[in-house]
Amino acid sequence: MKIAFSPCPNDTFIFHAWVHGLIPGAPKLEVTYADIDITNSLAATCSGPEVVKISYAALPWVLSEYALLPCGGALGRGCGPLVLMSSRAANTGGPAVLTGKRVAVPSERSTAYLLFRLWVSQNVPGGVSDIVILPFHEIMPAVRDGIVDAGLVIHEARFTYHTYGLTMLADLGSWWEAETNLPIPLGAIIARRTLHLSAIADWIRASVKYAWSHPEASQEYVLSHAQELSPEVAKAHINLYVNEFSVDLGETGYKAVNALLSRAAQVGLVPRVDLVPDSAYII
């Protein structure tokens, strides 16, 4: 079975057991490791993988071919994307300092960018000028080097941005939670509708539970894909993004996803969808 997910610690931690043949009855996986911008694009093609990690923001465009699985993704509190600037620029004012500025983002259809657009519409008079798409690990160096004025970052960047001399202008997860009192939906696991979806969900849940029961087993695998992160940062990343929603979105998780996509649809940023949870997956 072909699967695509990011090389980030939360994904490699979650899928380690399945990738290494430790889940009884689960098929062997052929893995593509790629940044979210690439996995979003893969899911939009006819030849995309059977199972793929995408941004929740990209979900409305792929639901005709893929179903949202209720596990394995990234959704939580205190884990939202950050807007970063150089310390000097960020200290010149609040969010309005972004007016007319050039901003790097990790993907046009990332949840981070969708949140950013919603936040900008409320907080940045006149909006920004240019959006530059960069792999997420290139964003902080681009801000530091003055290639862009600001950057929208995800994942472990929240633990490392200070080493680039950058300052947080806004925590979009905190903004979202204050607005909605809901967790932030970041990354979704989807599978082709032609597959045995409940079985795939069971294998993913088993892989998550194995990772929690054997936290040291995945360490070498996680660090080999973690783009030179220290073990401490990789562990902090996993602790933040792998949580109860990784096993089951539940009522709160689905409510958060619907809230994000309905707000975005109201202002024309995504097609309108109405997601209703099934016992195993959205149909």
Score class of each variant (00 low, 15 high):
residue 200 I to L: 12
residue 171 D to N: 12
residue 78 G to K: 14
residue 190 I to R: 01
residue 109 R to G: 13
residue 35 D to S: 13
residue 181 N to Y: 02
residue 264 A to Y: 02
residue 220 E to G: 05
residue 129 S to T: 09
residue 11 D to E: 06
residue 159 F to V: 13
residue 18 W to A: 00
residue 192 R to M: 10
residue 96 A to I: 05
residue 273 V to C: 02
residue 49 P to S: 05
residue 263 R to T: 10
residue 131 I to Q: 14
residue 126 G to Q: 08
residue 9 P to T: 04
residue 87 S to L: 15
residue 6 S to K: 12
residue 70 P to Y: 04
residue 179 E to P: 09
residue 232 E to A: 14
residue 122 Q to F: 11
residue 33 Y to P: 03
residue 180 T to A: 13
residue 274 D to R: 03
residue 230 S to W: 06
residue 132 V to W: 15
residue 249 L to V: 11
residue 100 G to I: 13
residue 16 H to T: 03
residue 32 T to W: 05
residue 158 R to D: 14
residue 91 N to Y: 14
residue 175 W to A: 09
residue 36 I to H: 06
residue 137 H to I: 10
residue 38 I to L: 03
residue 35 D to A: 14
residue 55 S to Q: 11
residue 97 V to N: 04
residue 153 V to L: 06
residue 28 K to P: 10
residue 86 S to P: 05
residue 230 S to V: 02
residue 198 S to F: 02
residue 20 H to T: 07
residue 11 D to V: 04
residue 144 R to A: 15
residue 188 A to I: 02
residue 260 L to V: 09
residue 34 A to R: 10
residue 15 F to T: 05
residue 183 P to K: 13
residue 267 V to M: 08
residue 281 Y to Q: 04
residue 210 Y to D: 01
residue 172 L to Y: 07
residue 54 I to K: 04
residue 135 P to D: 15
residue 275 L to M: 00
residue 38 I to G: 14
residue 33 Y to R: 11
residue 58 A to P: 08
residue 12 T to W: 00
residue 117 R to Q: 12
residue 11 D to I: 00
residue 102 R to H: 06
residue 128 V to K: 07
residue 159 F to A: 11
residue 213 S to C: 08
residue 130 D to M: 15
residue 233 V to T: 15
residue 34 A to K: 07
residue 133 I to A: 13
residue 154 I to R: 14
residue 279 S to F: 15
residue 213 S to H: 10
residue 68 L to W: 00
residue 181 N to S: 05
residue 128 V to L: 13
residue 13 F to G: 07
residue 251 E to H: 11
residue 139 I to E: 08
residue 77 R to Q: 14
residue 136 F to V: 14
residue 63 L to C: 02
residue 139 I to K: 11
residue 120 V to S: 07
residue 281 Y to A: 05
residue 49 P to D: 02
residue 276 V to N: 04
residue 165 G to W: 07
residue 274 D to P: 00
residue 134 L to Y: 09
residue 72 G to N: 03
residue 105 V to I: 15
residue 248 D to G: 01
residue 136 F to K: 13
residue 149 D to P: 01
residue 152 L to P: 04
residue 29 L to A: 06
residue 98 L to E: 13
residue 39 T to G: 07
residue 142 A to C: 15
residue 163 T to V: 10
residue 23 I to P: 07
residue 68 L to M: 11
residue 237 H to G: 01
residue 12 T to A: 06
residue 264 A to W: 03
residue 228 E to Q: 13
residue 277 P to L: 03
residue 26 A to C: 02
residue 140 M to C: 13
residue 160 T to H: 09
residue 161 Y to N: 10
residue 109 R to T: 09
residue 216 E to Y: 14
residue 42 L to G: 02
residue 105 V to P: 08
residue 18 W to N: 09
residue 78 G to M: 11
residue 73 G to T: 05
residue 42 L to D: 05
residue 224 S to G: 01
residue 201 A to C: 02
residue 4 A to S: 04
residue 210 Y to W: 13
residue 178 A to H: 10
residue 173 G to R: 04
residue 222 V to M: 00
residue 279 S to W: 05
residue 230 S to P: 10
residue 13 F to R: 00
residue 274 D to V: 01
residue 29 L to G: 06
